[in-house]
């Protein structure tokens, strides 16, 4: 369970997905319909796991290649990066355009879109009826499997 939901919240869209390495560095756009102008807010619960990835032999190779490309010391780069991170960001488009993104390493986020004040990273917006879109951008998928879960509630 991501979070206990209150009774007034209507689940308008949800997603459960597993990303793997072939999904790395791609955009995945999902649309969902808001059917009335009677909502004040959208609440988006976004979670993915795992976050941290242990640097194994394969990633050591990867870091060695990176060091060669960046003209820096491979041993040092490997020493300084015992763990790497999966990074998926979520961006939102209202029927009227781009609202913003949550570009940070938090992998358990609650994003609120509201006419007066939205969560940091997103412009305030009325919850107008029409097609909304959530785009997941996989900046870095290093694990064999990354579980992603999204729930969108209208309030």
């Amino acid at each position: 369970m991501i979070e206990a939901k209150t009774k007034q919240n209507l689940l308008v869209w949800s997603l459960k997905k597993v990303f793997d390495k072939k999904d790395d560095r791609k955009h995945f756009k999902y649309t969902f319909l808001i059917d009335s102008n009677n909502y004040d807010s959208l609440i988006i619960l976004f979670r993915y796991n795992p976050k941290d990835v242990k640097v194994d032999e394969r990633l050591k190779m990867c870091l060695t290649e990176l060091a060669i490309k960046s003209d820096c010391d491979a041993e040092l780069l490997i020493k300084e990066n015992k763990e790497l991170k999966n990074l998926i960001t979520l961006s939102i488009d209202s029927p009227h355009g781009y609202l913003g993104a949550a570009h940070r390493h938090n992998n358990n986020a609650k994003i609120i879109i509201n006419q007066l004040k939205s969560s940091q990273g997103f412009l305030p917006s009325p919850i107008t009826k029409g097609l909304w879109a959530i785009t997941l951008s996989t900046h870095c998928i290093l694990s064999n499997k990354v579980d992603v879960k999204i729930e969108v509630y209208a309030q």
């Binding site: 560095r25 990633l59 990867c62 870091l63 990176l66 060091a67 490309k69 960046s70 820096c72 780069l77 990066n81 790497l84 990074l87 900046h139 870095c140 290093l142």
Partner: peptide, 13 residues
């Protein structure tokens, strides 16, 4: 333009 990139900082380079 020349920061270490993927998989440490995607797009850094």
């Amino acid at each position: 333009p020349t920061r270490v990139g993927y998989p440490i900082c995607t797009g850094g380079w």
